Lab assay of single mutants.
Amino acid sequence: SDIKVHVGDITVELHNVSEEFARLVEEALRLGLNEEQAKEWAHKALH
């Protein structure tokens, strides 16, 4: 599904992702990663 993740003043739109993936992206953003890094990190975490 499509999910918007908000962290501080950052909003990341995720398309066709699981809630778990979105949660991992949100966690990575909170750790200070940028959007691209957060998506990559979440992807690796799920595989």
Rank of each mutant, 00 (worst) to 15 (best):
S1H: 15
S1Q: 13
S1D: 10
S1A: 13
S1V: 14
S1M: 14
S1W: 04
S1C: 07
D2H: 14
D2V: 15
D2G: 11
D2S: 13
D2E: 11
I3L: 09
I3N: 07
I3Q: 09
I3C: 05
K4Y: 04
K4W: 04
K4Q: 12
K4A: 12
K4T: 15
K4V: 15
K4F: 06
K4E: 10
K4P: 09
K4I: 15
V5D: 07
V5R: 03
V5T: 04
V5G: 05
V5P: 05
H6S: 14
H6E: 14
H6Y: 02
H6I: 15
V7I: 10
V7A: 08
V7L: 08
V7E: 06
V7G: 08
V7R: 02
V7Q: 06
V7C: 04
G8N: 09
G8S: 06
G8E: 08
G8H: 08
G8T: 05
G8K: 04
D9V: 10
D9Q: 12
D9R: 04
D9T: 12
D9M: 11
D9S: 13
D9W: 03
D9H: 11
D9Y: 03
D9L: 11
D9K: 08
D9P: 09
I10C: 05
I10A: 08
I10Y: 08
I10M: 11
I10F: 09
I10K: 08
I10D: 05
I10H: 09
I10E: 06
T11H: 09
T11D: 07
T11P: 03
T11I: 14
T11S: 10
T11K: 09
V12H: 06
V12M: 07
V12C: 03
V12S: 05
V12P: 05
V12N: 04
V12I: 14
V12K: 03
V12R: 02
E13R: 07
E13Y: 03
E13I: 15
E13W: 03
E13Q: 12
E13A: 09
L14D: 05
L14T: 05
L14G: 06
L14S: 04
H15W: 04
H15V: 11
H15I: 12
N16A: 08
N16D: 10
N16Q: 10
V17R: 05
V17E: 07
V17P: 06
V17N: 04
V17T: 09
V17A: 10
S18D: 05
S18T: 14
E19T: 14
E19V: 15
E19I: 15
E19R: 12
E19K: 13
E19L: 14
E19G: 10
E19W: 15
E20N: 10
E20T: 13
E20Q: 14
E20Y: 14
E20H: 12
E20P: 08
E20V: 14
F21Q: 01
F21E: 02
F21P: 00
F21H: 02
F21T: 01
A22I: 07
A22T: 04
A22D: 03
A22S: 07
A22C: 03
R23N: 08
R23W: 08
R23E: 04
R23Y: 07
L24V: 02
L24K: 09
L24S: 02
L24N: 02
L24E: 01
L24W: 09
L24I: 03
V25S: 00
V25P: 00
V25I: 09
V25M: 05
V25H: 01
V25K: 02
E26Y: 15
E26S: 10
E26Q: 11
E26H: 10
E26T: 12
E26R: 13
E26G: 13
E26K: 12
E27T: 14
E27N: 07
E27Q: 15
E27G: 05
E27R: 13
E27Y: 15
E27L: 15
A28N: 02
A28V: 01
A28S: 02
A28C: 03
A28T: 00
A28Q: 02
A28P: 00
L29D: 00
L29Q: 02
L29M: 09
L29K: 03
L29S: 01
R30G: 09
R30P: 00
R30M: 12
R30D: 02
R30E: 06
R30V: 08
R30C: 08
L31D: 06
L31E: 06
L31I: 09
L31F: 13
L31W: 12
L31K: 10
G32E: 01
G32V: 00
G32A: 01
G32D: 02
G32S: 01
G32I: 00
G32C: 02
G32L: 01
L33S: 02
L33V: 02
L33Y: 13
L33W: 07
L33N: 02
L33F: 11
L33T: 01
L33M: 15
L33R: 03
N34F: 03
N34R: 05
N34H: 04
N34A: 07
N34E: 06
E35S: 11
E35H: 07
E35M: 12
E35L: 15
E35K: 10
E35N: 04
E35P: 10
E36W: 10
E36G: 09
E36F: 11
E36N: 10
E36S: 11
E36D: 14
E36Y: 11
E36Q: 13
Q37G: 05
Q37V: 03
Q37D: 13
Q37F: 03
A38L: 01
A38E: 00
A38S: 07
A38H: 00
A38T: 00
A38K: 00
K39G: 02
K39I: 14
K39L: 14
K39D: 02
K39R: 14
K39V: 12
K39P: 01
K39A: 04
E40Y: 15
E40H: 12
E40I: 09
E40M: 13
E40S: 10
E40K: 12
W41L: 04
W41M: 04
W41I: 03
W41A: 05
W41R: 04
W41T: 02
W41Y: 14
A42T: 01
A42V: 02
A42L: 02
A42F: 01
A42P: 00
A42S: 01
A42N: 00
A42I: 03
A42D: 00
A42Q: 00
H43G: 07
H43T: 11
H43K: 13
H43Q: 10
K44D: 09
K44Q: 14
K44A: 13
K44H: 09
K44L: 12
K44M: 14
A45C: 08
A45Q: 14
A45N: 12
A45T: 12
A45S: 11
A45E: 11
L46G: 03
L46P: 01
L46I: 12
L46E: 05
L46T: 07
L46A: 07
H47M: 13
H47C: 13
H47L: 14
H47R: 10
H47G: 11
H47N: 12
